[in-house]
Design a protein around this nucleic acid. Structure first.
Lengths: 199, 199
DNA sequence: TGCTCGATGTGACCGACGGTTACATTGCGC
DNA sequence: GCGCAATGTAACCGTCGGTCACATCGAGCA
């Protein structure tokens, strides 16, 4: 439907969103490395130079995509956390974090690929702070000691480590898929005695 | 010395190693994305087509580089573990793992970038198994229960998570550099009560 | 010694890429 | 309804990974 054959107006109208959707499709189907502006533009039904009216750079296309993905990820986590029992907030946040990564490996990867996006971008920083806060809130009971302590780091690193290892394939090679979910939950539950009695 | 001006023999003699060294230099200086076979070849003093006599693909060049890096990383960890007190093996392994990542962010990244290398390569699998074993041995007292349990996963994920977060810049933004080392050690020490009393 | 043949390196070429520029088309505010 | 800024286009550039026909080498054999 977004094919180049179907555009009737000279101006596209929603090029930016359409391009990000296309990036998402390619990232999910064939990986980040195969994303090309020319292919995106063709699928969206536009010449590839048109993209440069809306993005200064391929880097900024991917940055915009990363921002959108980070927001979606944070939103998914917040929803799960809101529904969780008071004592299980961290577990819920961690599982939601890992779940998003497993279901959306492509977008998840791009969010953390600072080598390929523009990490100084203000909107990106904002989105990443929001994402970090999701885990922090779950980790210690919402306390706002801004300095990252050992407990918060352990929570963040464990969850992020599991998500990363899985997305990179290392995890799914070493453990069968049906055991994976319970293994992850068990693993995160081990952290409760450490994280709970927060100073 | 390896510059294109200095080669006297028609055959290079050690092209593969020279190319991997050059990949390392570029990866460290400008990041993986800017590695190009043509640039490597030129610096090594060879036409870019010559590389295809030794590697079928750019992907296989990076795979070879990843393998070499993984071995070096495993070696560094093994050395530190060997020197550590019996009760501190895991801590030593974790710190060495993170230390390698911090000192060699480029190579560390490539080792886990399965999207850009050939993850089915036998030598690569072997190197990664060796790397995983380094942390596992530190984690539970050398026990060889092959199935990855919650304790081993927690150990692996925490260490890998910290390394990844730091390499990606997220960590160094949130905590000052002089606090970083002690923070990481504190964080890993929290895991001792969990990992020690292994079943 | 001199020849041959496999291994290694070369240069020209290909299509695709990201990015730029001069130009075409559109729709909104006056 | 006119003019101008926003948007899209086509042609072009240098570079990339990869291929191919050909050149050069060195080890082993006559």
């Amino acid at each position: 439907m977004n094919d180049q054959t179907s555009r009737r107006t000279y101006h596209h109208g929603a090029l930016v969103e359409a391009v990000l959707d296309e990036v998402e499709r390619i990232v999910e189907d064939d990986g980040l490395e195969t994303v090309s502006l020319r292919a995106c533009a063709k699928r969206v039904g536009v010449s590839h130079s048109a993209l440069f009216r809306h993005f200064s750079d391929k880097r900024h296309v991917l940055t915009a995509f990363a921002i959108r993905s980070a927001h979606r990820m944070a939103h998914a986590i917040e929803q799960k956390v809101a529904k969780a029992e008071p004592g299980e907030k961290f577990l819920a946040a961690g599982l939601a974090y890992i779940d998003y990564a497993m279901r959306n490996p492509g977008p998840f990867r791009v969010v953390f690929r600072e080598d390929v996006i523009e990490p100084t971008d203000l909107d990106y920083r904002q989105a990443m702070d929001k994402l970090g806060a999701c885990l922090a809130i779950g980790g210690h009971g919402g306390g706002n000691d801004l300095s990252l302590g050992p407990k918060a780091l352990l929570a963040w690193a464990s969850v992020h480590g599991i998500a990363t290892l899985h997305v990179d394939g290392s995890l799914s090679r070493d453990v069968s898929e049906d055991r994976l979910e319970s293994l992850i939950e068990e693993t995160l539950r081990q952290l409760s005695p450490i994280l709970k009695p927060s100073a």
